[in-house]
C-alpha cells in the first residue's frame, strides 16, 4: 500500500511541478505583477513549445537531433516580415478581423515556407547522416550556418521591424494586472495549435503510427507502415511548427534579425532535456516551465533570467537524470 502510494507520487510529481512553481511565485512576486508575469510566461512557453515539439518528435522518431532547427524559426520570422509588408493596409487598421486575417496569412506562409525548406533539408542534409550521431551534429551545425548566412543574403544584415497589428497593441486589465493583448492572442493561437497536435497524435491513425514509431521503428515497419514517408511528413511538420514559432516570436518582439533562432536554441534544448527527449507531453511541460521561470526570475533578478533556466535544468537532471518523461531507448 505504501509502495503504491510512493509510485503514484513518483508518477505525478512531474505534473505537479508547474502548478507548484506558479503558486510559489505568488508570495515572492505579489499579486499584481504575478498575473501579468504568469500570462507572459505561459505565452512564451507556448511559443517555445511550437518550436521544441517538432524537434523532439523528429528526434524521437528517427534519432536525429537537428541542430539547425533554429534556422527554421529564423526563416519563419523573416517570411512573416515579407508577407506582412504588402498587407500593411490590413495590419495598420484597428479592425480586429482584418488584423487577424493578415496574421493568419502570415502564419500559414511562415509555416509553409519553413515546411518546404524542411522537405529540402531532409532530402539534402539529414538523409545522409541517419544513424551517425557525430556527423549529424556536425552537418546540421554547418547547415545552420549556411541558412543563417543565406537569410542575411536575402533579407540583408540589418534588423527588420515587424510592428504588431493595430488592434493587438496595448494591454487589457484583469483586476489591476495589465496583460498585453498580443500575448493573449498568441496564447490562444499556440494553445489551438497544441490542441490540434494533441488530437492528431491521439485520434488519428497517422498519429498512432508516429507514437508507435517513437518507441520501435522496426516493428512499425513490420506492421506495414513506411516509416521513411512518415518521417518526412513529421520533419516537415516539425519545421513548419518552428516557422510558426518564429512568426509569433518575431511579431511579439516587433523586430527580426538573423539571430532570432539562435536565441531560442539553448532554451529549446533545455526544454528537450527537461521534458525527456522524444516526449511531446514532456516537451509541453518543459516549455511552460521554462517560459514561467524566465518571466518570474526576469522580474525578481533580471540578470539571472537565462541562467535560471540552466539551473532549473541542472536541478531536474539531478532529480530525474533522463528528464521528466523519459522515452524508451531505441
Amino acid at each position: 500500500m505504501k509502495e503504491d502510494w510512493r509510485n503514484h507520487m513518483r508518477r505525478w510529481a512531474p505534473y505537479a511541478l508547474t502548478p507548484l512553481i506558479i503558486l510559489a511565485a505568488l508570495p515572492a512576486i505579489g499579486a499584481g505583477p504575478w498575473l501579468t508575469l504568469t500570462v507572459a510566461g505561459l505565452t512564451m512557453g507556448i511559443m517555445l513549445f511550437l518550436v521544441a515539439s517538432g524537434l523532439t518528435l523528429i528526434f524521437g522518431l528517427m534519432d536525429v537531433l537537428n541542430f539547425a532547427h533554429a534556422a527554421f524559426v529564423t526563416v519563419g520570422a523573416y517570411v512573416t516580415v515579407t508577407v506582412l509588408r504588402p498587407l500593411a493596409g490590413w495590419t495598420m487598421q484597428t479592425s480586429l478581423t482584418l488584423n487577424l486575417i493578415a496574421l493568419l496569412v502570415a502564419l500559414i506562409a511562415a509555416a509553409a515556407a519553413s515546411g518546404a525548406l524542411g522537405f529540402v533539408f531532409e532530402r539534402v542534409i539529414i538523409r545522409q547522416v541517419y544513424g551517425a550521431p557525430l556527423r549529424q551534429i556536425l552537418i546540421t551545425i554547418g547547415a545552420l550556418t549556411i541558412i543563417e548566412q543565406l537569410v542575411v543574403v536575402i533579407w540583408g544584415p540589418q534588423a527588420l521591424v515587424l510592428p504588431k497589428p493595430a488592434s493587438l497593441r496595448g494591454s487589457v486589465f484583469i483586476g489591476s494586472s495589465p496583460i498585453e493583448t498580443y500575448r493573449l492572442a498568441a496564447l490562444a493561437v499556440g494553445l489551438a495549435v497544441a490542441l490540434a497536435m494533441h488530437l492528431f497524435l491521439r485520434r488519428t491513425r497517422l498519429g498512432l503510427v508516429v507514437r508507435a514509431g517513437v518507441e520501435n521503428r522496426e516493428m512499425v515497419q513490420a506492421l506495414g507502415y513506411h516509416i521513411r514517408r512518415v518521417f518526412i511528413g513529421v520533419f516537415m511538420a516539425g519545421t513548419a511548427l518552428a516557422g510558426m514559432g518564429g512568426m509569433m516570436w518575431g511579431q511579439y518582439q516587433e523586430t527580426v534579425n538573423s539571430q532570432i533562432g539562435d536565441s531560442m536554441t539553448i532554451l529549446v534544448f533545455i526544454i528537450l532535456i527537461i521534458g525527456g527527449l522524444g516526449s511531446v507531453g514532456g516537451c509541453f511541460i518543459g516549455a511552460i516551465l521554462v517560459g514561467l521561470t524566465t518571466n518570474y526570475v526576469g522580474f525578481l533578478a533580471p540578470k539571472m533570467a537565462l541562467g535560471s533556466n540552466i539551473l532549473l535544468m541542472a536541478a531536474i537532471l539531478l532529480w530525474q537524470p533522463r528528464g521528466l518523461f523519459p522515452m524508451a531507448e531505441h
Binding site: F59, L65, P133, L134, I137, T265, I266, F269, I270, L272, I273, L277, I310, M313, L317, P321, R322, E329
Partner: peptide, 12 residues
C-alpha cells in the same frame, strides 16, 4: 548519458 544528451548539456 547518451552522446547527444551530453552535447546538449555542454551547450547549456
Amino acid at each position: 548519458l547518451r552522446a547527444i544528451f551530453f552535447s546538449m548539456i555542454t551547450l547549456a
